[in-house]
Design a protein around this nucleic acid. Structure first.
Lengths: 148, 148
DNA sequence: GTAATATAAGACCTAACCGGTCGGAGATAC
DNA sequence: GTATCTCCGACCGGTTAGGTCTTATATTAC
């Protein structure tokens, strides 16, 4: 699995739309939802969540809508995922709080956290601006030099 | 989220046990489950799944149990996750099969798949042998040179 | 002021999936 | 041959993500 939620997918689509296609960079939740044929109310909820995190700025009233809260090249995939799905965690047990039942005997916790950090750094180095750029075929090198 | 399932956690623990602690490299599901205080039947199911993938080899009867199907340094984290949770996919829509409702208008699919590949390569470069090595403080460099 | 349009926020329903349980089948030991 | 140990496959229930509905609130147009 290791799937990110559908809500995140929707949020990503919306952000991408605001970044590259929306006239004047503004669009209402309804317009975006109709464009991609996704439930309006659900997208609205996602937009709210991103508004609370500052990823988008909301303006009410007629001709209102959402626009990006900051430049597209400063919004990373990690920001989006965290805003919608909460902090990234690949294991059941969080870093500090609630140790799981196997905490004492768990032998794979530390290495797993390192893996998590590596995945996190992948998400942190992918910006919204890069994702919208369809033309550029990004040549991503992941040398992954593991010194043992 | 982006969480891997509890089953995967258990499978990882079991494999690690077989690799480094089990006498003669063999142990029954019951023994492993008791060691880590996890439900026997659940671990049994996980072991079955890994047996089907060839990650472990099962032998029935008295003094039976599981042992690694191949060398620990040839078993990657990606193998384990795929064996238990199915093929890695961070998006709802798979690569070839069932296009989601937004397939036609989806603008983030390709970049997301690239992200998926990068995450996959992280999992593919982490072997069971490395994870079990508690002593070595692996210094993992992820330069992530993104050329745009 | 009134109507229309937009976000904000909450409760609520539903269906898939994860986590957990049960009886059976195969292999070994004696 | 029987007892015992093991793996094996089908079955079930609770959680949760995905989706819906309703109400409140703010802004603009007229």
């Amino acid at each position: 699995m290791l799937r990110l939620s559908k809500k995140t997918d929707y949020g990503l689509l919306a952000l991408n739309f605001l970044a590259s296609e929306a006239p004047a960079g503004v669009a209402s939740a309804r317009v975006i939802a109709e464009k991609y044929e996704i439930p309006v109310e659900l997208l609205a909820k996602v937009m709210q969540q991103m508004a609370r995190s500052g990823l988008v700025a909301a303006s009410k009233g007629a001709h209102g809508g959402y626009k990006l809260g900051r430049a597209a090249n400063t919004i990373t995939l990690a920001d989006i995922v965290e805003s919608i799905d909460g902090p990234l965690a690949i294991t059941a047990c969080g870093r500090n709080d609630d140790p799981c039942d196997q905490y004492g005997s768990c032998t794979v916790r530390d290495p797993l956290w390192k893996v998590k950090d590596r995945i996190l750094s992948v998400l942190q180095t992918t910006t919204l601006a890069e994702m919208g750029d369809k033309e550029v075929d990004k040549d991503i090198h992941v040398p992954l030099t593991v010194r043992v």
